[in-house]
Design a protein around this nucleic acid. Structure first.
Lengths: 175, 175
DNA sequence: AATTTAAGTCAGTGTTATTGACATATATGC
DNA sequence: GCATATATGTCAATAACACTGACTTAAATT
């Protein structure tokens, strides 16, 4: 679970506050800017938690995503992984081959349908997955503590609302 | 405000539900997995909203971020932008030069300190910014509607908690 | 037997990011 | 006024992660 981009800084000169023209206010759009920025920063910092650890292994976020999903769904096939990640076969191939070569992921031909290769984490892979997930869990727990438990359900509900219909069903706790 | 990575799919074969070992449960870590996945999917879908429009201009997420922040902080300097985005001068340079060349961003030497170049959106840039922000606003509004207004404050509070201390002060509504 | 599915591979390309070195103009401290 | 620091910009080289399109192999399905 990794990957954002930019944001956040220390003021060197001066930054005027975000100007809100009257039109913005009435359209309601201005009020959503905080949400947009928060999402951006939050996602970046959240994923940043894992990045340092991944770098120790010469891995990037793509590796993390593969490890995470195989860990969450042991025995999943390559095509299932492709659909979850929404990347091309070629892109997955690069990362997955590396993980297999280096002994983090293991492939086994499905007994029933021998075209399929089921994917599993090795002990080594599982260990890395655990370390990565622990880091990010700690980060989330801290945010929950700060915001208060009352905020958690709202947080999850809005996130769920941000996800497109199709993907929504296979994420997290239904409600 | 753009940029995530992976997740979400359509089941072709079968995906066992995320297994939770007893240890995971007691550590509390297992309960945070939904949050991790939701963040991942939500961020991807949220930013995906803007990607299609950006592609029409041959722009990527990096361009969006620059446009967004200059729009939010007109007159900001290059170094301020660098600190917000947390990228290198070189990385920004590529994107910013392009935006300037193509007339989306305008640079003006600061009157007081002539080393500084203050950045502004042109009408053209402002127009694109508006269209991008509108799209994402609509997406967020829909999520708010679905989750219910009661959820919004919790959503914002937890996101804020996910952001590192330093950056927190300059994001969105203080509380 | 023909078609479809699952997986893998090849070659080429693009975007976004990195580092380190260096240049220029300007401002500031002494 | 000179030395230093700051703000910006540029060069060259590199890397991670993604894409497309074409093609192969093996196995399952119809």
């Amino acid at each position: 679970m990794t990957d954002p981009g930019p944001i956040a800084r220390k003021q060197t000169g001066s930054l005027p506050p975000v100007e809100k023209s009257p039109e913005e206010k009435t359209s309601g759009e201005g009020e959503l800017r905080p949400a947009m920025e928060l999402l951006f920063f939050a996602y970046r910092d959240f994923t940043g938690e894992a990045d340092a650890l991944l770098a120790d292994f010469g891995f990037g976020r793509a590796h993390h995503r593969v490890i995470y999903f195989i860990g969450a769904h042991p025995g999943m096939s390559v095509s299932e992984l492709l659909k979850i990640l929404r990347i091309t076969k070629q892109s997955l191939s690069r990362v997955l081959s590396q993980l297999i070569e280096e002994g983090f992921v293991l492939q086994r031909t499905d007994a029933a349908d021998r075209r399929r290769r089921r994917l599993y984490l090795t002990a080594k892979g599982s260990n890395l997955e655990r370390r990565l997930t622990e880091r990010q869990s700690r980060w989330i727990e801290a945010a929950y503590r700060e915001a208060g438990q009352d905020s958690v359900q709202g947080f999850l509900d809005v996130l769920r609302g941000l996800i497109n219909e199709d993907d929504r069903k296979r994420v997290g706790i239904p409600r």
